[in-house]
């Protein structure tokens, strides 16, 4: 058991494995996205209060879910890297951060484009919107901190500490609409309660979330491969890898 884990936790064995996994996740993401978009636009009915504008929910909510979920996974990898002092988990955390930042920004921007026609404002400083903005700063801070330290091992440690401190913010985002008066409405989907939306709308939203999830795995694997090549460019396995692929130099 142990032997197996250690085998796959070294970059030279994980690199080709990740390469074989990427197409599967990319295909899954595409298929879920096509079905999800079809349901979002052609099957899901018009909303009784928001008309067609509510369809922004099909990108906004999945993006917001991913922004929080990726942060938790990233912090988990960072903690694993910190406690085992291992390379691969730290690289996974580093690979997830930019995608998490993109989904956070997407949640903020699509929310803004939904808030303007529905609420009447592009932006308000309520607890939900403010805490999501802080999440964006946490991602950007993590990326900036990691790239500002030359020694990769030290950069991993500093980044991991920041990522772990920032975890506090995730439950704040999630429960902000419950704990405080916010302009943002409460949760449509919550644990222990029936979803407050019709099944076809829910199905579209879940499929889009699934598509984003598969996309995230594919893209994180792509990025972790880049990080491995860049960090270990002097090692023999990278040289072998580089010489085995075609193309001009």
């Amino acid at each position: 058991m142990n032997i197996n884990w250690f085998k796959y936790s070294s970059p030279q064995t994980f690199y080709p494995l990740a390469g074989r996994m990427i197409p599967w996740f990319a295909w899954a993401a595409s298929i879920f996205a096509v079905i999800g978009l079809y349901i979002s636009f052609f099957i899901a009915p018009t909303d009784f209060q928001q008309g067609e504008a509510y369809r922004i929910i099909f990108v906004h909510v999945p993006a917001a879910w991913m922004s929080m979920f990726i942060y938790m996974v990233m912090a988990g990898w960072a903690a694993l890297g910190l406690s085992l002092n291992a390379r691969l988990p730290a690289m996974m955390a580093q690979a997830l951060a930019p995608t998490g930042a993109i989904f956070t920004l997407l949640a903020l921007v699509t929310g803004s484009f939904w808030g303007k026609p529905m609420w009447g404002a592009w932006w308000v400083w309520d607890a939900r919107l403010t805490s999501e903005l802080i999440l964006l700063f946490l991602y950007l801070g993590f990326i900036a901190l990691q790239s500002s330290i030359d020694d990769p091992r030290k950069a991993d440690k500093a980044g991991a500490l920041l990522a772990l401190v920032g975890v506090v913010n995730v439950p704040i985002i999630y429960f902000s609409v419950k704990w405080w008066n916010t302009l943002h409405q409460g949760s449509t989907i919550s644990m222990g309660a029936a979803p407050k939306m019709v099944t076809t709308m829910l199905l579209g939203m879940l499929l889009m979330a699934l598509a984003f999830w598969m996309y995230t795995i594919a893209v994180a694997l792509m990025r972790v491969r880049c990080i491995m090549l860049e960090r270990e460019r002097a090692s023999d396995w990278v040289k072998e890898q580089a010489l085995s692929v075609g193309g001009n130099t």
């Binding site: 909303d47 009784f48 609420w119 009447g120 409405q185 409460g186 449509t188 407050k196 019709v198 709308m201």
Partner: peptide
Amino acid sequence: SEVLAKHDENYMPPEAAE
């Protein structure tokens, strides 16, 4: 000086709402 609409978290077709 500014009025914002606050909608709830329910989504359904108009017929269902009716």
